[in-house]
Each structure stands twice: as C-alpha cells, then as structure tokens.
Design a protein around this nucleic acid. Structure first.
Lengths: 340, 340
DNA sequence: TTGTATGCGTTATCAA
DNA sequence: TTGATAACGCATACAA
C-alpha cells in the first residue's frame, strides 16, 4: 500500500551524515568508528526503520542463506510434518557448539502426488541458495542429488536412501523393527500372522522383508494371502479384514505396518468380533490408552528429522568425509495387544 | 568441495556469443530474439548448468520472493504442523485461478518457549522478503505487525487475533465449540462438569468462557474447583483427576480442552475406576476407535492454515480491503463418550 | 578512523 | 532485433 520506499544503507548514511561504508561498519559491528558516529548511525537506522536487504548482502558476499530446504512427499501425512518438527528442534538446539548462530529457517515444500516435481523443487531451492537440503526421496532416481553434493551443498536423504547416488541418509530400521515385532507374535505361539499396510517404494518393502525373515526363521511358510500392503487409509482396512476372516485358516495375529493400518485395525476390532493379537509399526498417541493398549515398534519421525539435520549441521561445520548412513533404532514398546 | 564457480548469465552469453541482455531475454522468454540465437543460448545454459541467481534477480527487480513466512509457537505441538500442512495445501492448490504460478515455498520457524523471539523472527523473515506472513501470536502485543501490513506485506494471524493492531485473522470458534460441547453434557443431566486443559493466553480463555456460558445458561453455578487449565502434558492429568475425585461432590463429566488433556483423561479412565462422561475439544486419530469412542468438538488445524493462506493469496491477488476476521466452525462430532 | 571506487549477477533503459 | 551502460543495495579493497 504505502509506497514508502524501503530505506537503504545509503539513506541511513545520509541522515547520519556519514559515508555508506561507515554506516555499514556500525551496523555490522566492525568497530573502528567514533562513538558519536556510532550513535548517529544507530539513531538514523532506527528512525528510518532500516532493515538490511539480505539479497544485496548475499549477492555481494557470495554467501548462502541460513535456510535449510526440506522436500517431503505428500504433506498430507503427519509423519512428514513430524520430520520437519525434528529438523526445527535440531537447528534451534542451544546445546550445539555453534552458539550465537543466526536465526535458521526451514524452507519447505512437498511434491504432493507428483513425485516428478521433486527435481524441480530441489532446483528451485538451490536457486534460492539454501545452505543445505533434506530430501525425502519419492522418485526412483536421485542421481541428480549427487551433483548437488559435489557443488558443496550438503544433502541428506530422509526415511529412504537415495537411489543412484551416494549421499548422506538417515533411515529407520524398518527391516529389523518389523522382524522383532513379528517375532514377538511368533513367541506368543502365532503362526498365522497377517501383514497390513500402505504401499510404499522403500519402507514397506523393508518391513515386509522383516516380516518374512521372522517367519522364515521360525520355520513358518509365508502365505501371500495374508500379506496386504495395499491400504490407502484407515477405512480401507475393513474390506481387507473381511477377506482375511473369510479364509479357511484365518490369521490369529496382525502386524500393522503404519499408523493408518493400526487405526483401521483398531476400528475393525471394535466393529467386528475379531480380536487378533496385534503389533503395530509406528507409535501413536492413542496406543497407550486404547483397550488393549497397543504394542508397537517405535518409529519416530521427529528423531529422523533431528538426526538428518545434525548430519547437515556437521557438514556445515566442516565435516567433509564420505557420505554417512544413519539407522535410527526402532525399539519395541511392549504393551498388551501382542498377547493372545 | 569442488570450487566449480556457479556459472553466471555472462558465462552463458559468452559461450553463446551474444550479449548478456540477449541471453537474459531468451531465458526469461521475452521474445524478440532470433531463433538461432535462442537455440544457442539455451544450449549454452544447459551445457553450463546455468541456474539464475535469485538474489541478483530480486535485487534488480525489487521483487519479493515466492515464499510465505510461517511463524508458529512451539513446533513440538502437532497442531502447528497441522497448520503448516494446511498452508501447503492451499498454496499448491491447482484449483485457484492463478494457475501457472511459480513454485511457492513455506519459510517456517517457531519461537520455541521464547515468545520474545517472535518479533525477531518476523523481522528476519521480512529481511528475506517473504511475500506474506502467517503468524501464530504468542506475545501479548502484536502492534509491530500493523506496521508491516502497512508496508504492503500481507499479514494474517492464525489461531488467535493479533493484540494491539487490526490485521487479518483466522481463528477457530473456541468459545462456541466449548459451549456446545458442555451443553451436550448438560443435556445428559450432568451438573458437575470439570474443565481440564493446558494454559494458553487466548484459546483456553475462550474455551473456558464457553464452558462457563453453557453452565450459566443452564442455571448451574460454576465451581472453580472443577476448572483446571493447568496441565502441561497428558501425564499431568493424573494428579488433577485425583483431586477431582477427592472432592465431596466429584464431577460426573469432564470437558477436556485439548488433545493432551483428552489423551490424559483416557489414560485415567483405564487406570482408575473413574468413568465420567466426556467431551473433548479437538478431534484426534484414536477418538473413533477407543472404548468408548470420544465425542469431540472438531478443531481442524489444517483448515485453519488453509483459510489463512487463502486470505494471504487474496491479498496477493489484489484485495486491498480492510482486515478480515475468519472464524472456523467447530462442529460437534457425536460419538459415545458424552453419554452417561 | 573514514571515505572512494568498484563489483556481486541480474534486469531496465535507451540508443543503434 | 540487439547490445552497451547503468542501477539495484550492500560489502570489499584500498587510500587517505
């Protein structure tokens, strides 16, 4: 509205009766300025409401921003906002050694259904000179990220490793977590254990692998009719439960591979007479308060984001070693639902 | 690592054998360039891997970014990430009339415990020339936002109105929602109804107001020993439940004012023999699947964020009217827990 | 301690 | 259709 042109450093200098350079010195606390001029410049800056133009500054200093780019998959899933929360926590952590760092920001965008936009979004973020990038890979090829890392932009993949290139990555122990979860059910004597979850390129595959490994180790043959990595939301668990129940030899236990599957399964327990034992991948708010309380494999998006941000901060702090892989533990939280 | 200097427009122009301006024309699709030169420039840009320096461009064009700044309170609360999700959805909505808009981003930061940082963060975002600002007010005075709005930066407050200035705001119907929720309990014959929730400047006050209004309207005198806007997390509900139960005349129903209170209350129901009727403010994943299913006042952070972003987009599209207040409905979702 | 001249990478102006 | 030149706002090098 008001066209009141944003005041520049030159305006401040004029008003203070000094040269632009002196004003710059004052505002950047370089010292070597007479106290009275310091006062005049400061006063002028306040009166004018001067705020430095970050673009001009960064253009001149060839610096990068204090911003970390975060590219997630569909933002509709609270899991990814949990990751963002973890990044927030890490970059604002006062315990890190680089105290007095400037305010850091998160520049976020999600690919939303169209994973082909992933490279575009990354490119746009690089144009905006983000100081680092966190990417949840959704495409089948992240080789374009390698070029970035070589250009000196720290890149970390989250939740899944990058395909086609070797960059830092933070992933959860999907395989091991699923395996331990299913083992818990096997230890209760179950031999017919269903797998229910949503389809996903990497993580679901890993969890299915863990599920199969646990069964194989126990000498149980995998029945593919029990494996349903096909749900879209909690509601879609209902029909799957029907099909499972209609089998000659229905499962006596269920491993739910994500929160949606778990919520859906709980709904089935309520509305149907079916009461299978249950272990869930990913903890959720209600798990400790429903009846029975739900035993889960803890999969913490916040921790994922936090560790990823820490890898980034390490690189920004000077680490130049080879790409690192961090695997976040997925410990079992034993509650009641795995008991027969 | 590799110091491979980022190629500039001049580099592209050199390689294509044209002037920088011509290269610029081509890259910005300004037209009026001979086809063969267009091809040469495009080829050179690709070969060099040229990406424009956004800072230089914005400096020159005096433009603002395509970024919306979002300042939230403590990012530890999933409610705020829900708001961010809503903003994401709105700014990426292909149904809006401004199709073909450039990739828009969210620049986010949270004040984390220290609400005094709110103005600093806003200032830093303005220095970064965000095209608009969404703020969840945490301080007691947002008059500094008024100046911003006058400078032409669209500002929208989310969840709570700004104090000390009149800017766009999107808030939930906290008062009405709480009132309707409590009325539901009164209709079931309850007259001793407790209020449990976390302290908060604005929203909790509104919800308590609704709670009181409902009681007053029913001729029930408010007993302050039943009002506990003091929890910090779900676990802190336990001691409060003890105190409520130790009263001569314990409540027969509870209104939980936020998700933490609701989860905490569910835990109390499990671990104690106390089974009060219950209505909760804010829906949560497990509400439809616990026993009994929880009747809630629906408070949708995603909708809050979405509407806020829409106000912003309206202003960016040219709306220059007076500040608007949007109140998001908080409809009751009747399930079972309100029944005695 | 202070100021002048120059350049960062891009676009705008205007003349050719 | 093209290109030389200036300017955006700031910081750096170098002088004074």
């Amino acid at each position: 509205m008001s066209a009141a042109k944003t005041p520049t450093l030159a305006d401040v200098a004029d008003r203070a009766g000094v040269s632009p350079k002196t004003a710059s010195r004052v505002l950047n606390h370089e010292g070597n300025v007479r106290p009275d001029k310091v006062a005049r410049v400061l006063a002028a800056a306040t009166e004018l409401g001067f705020t430095p133009n970050e673009f001009a500054r960064l253009l001149r200093t060839r610096g990068s921003t204090t911003t970390i780019g975060v590219v997630t998959a569909d933002i509709g899933d609270p899991f990814w906002t949990g990751v963002i929360r973890g990044v927030e926590l890490a970059i604002g952590d006062p315990d890190r050694d680089d105290v007095g760092h400037p305010q850091r920001f998160i520049l976020s965008a999600s690919t939303r259904e169209r994973s082909d936009r992933e490279p575009e979004i990354v490119a746009a973020m690089v144009d905006r000179r983000v100081m680092a990038l966190l990417v949840v890979p959704t495409t089948t090829d992240q080789s374009y990220l390698g070029a970035l890392a070589e250009r000196g932009v720290p890149v970390v993949c989250v939740d899944r490793p990058a395909a086609g290139t070797d960059v830092d990555a933070v992933v959860a122990d999907d395989d091991g977590g699923a395996r331990r979860g299913v083992e818990l059910l096997i230890a209760q004597g179950h031999r017919r254990i269903a797998f229910v979850g949503r389809p996903s390129v990497y993580t679901t595959a890993e969890r299915i692998a863990g599920y199969r490994a646990a069964l194989r180790a126990a000498g149980i043959v995998v029945d593919d009719r029990l494996v349903h990595p096909t749900i879209t939301d909690a509601a879609s668990v209902g029909p799957i439960a029907e099909r499972l129940l209609s089998l000659d030899d229905p499962p006596t236990a269920v491993f739910t591979a994500d929160v949606a599957a778990s919520i859906g399964m709980l709904a089935c327990r309520r509305t149907r007479s079916w009461r299978p034992a249950m272990v869930a991948f990913s903890d959720f708010d209600a798990a400790p308060v429903v009846e029975p309380t739900v035993t889960v494999v803890h999969n913490d998006p916040v921790e994922l984001g936090r560790r990823a941000a820490e890898l980034v901060l390490d690189r920004l702090a000077g680490y130049t070693g080879p790409p690192r892989r961090v695997r976040i533990d997925t410990p079992i939280i034993e509650r009641e639902s795995h008991l027969a």
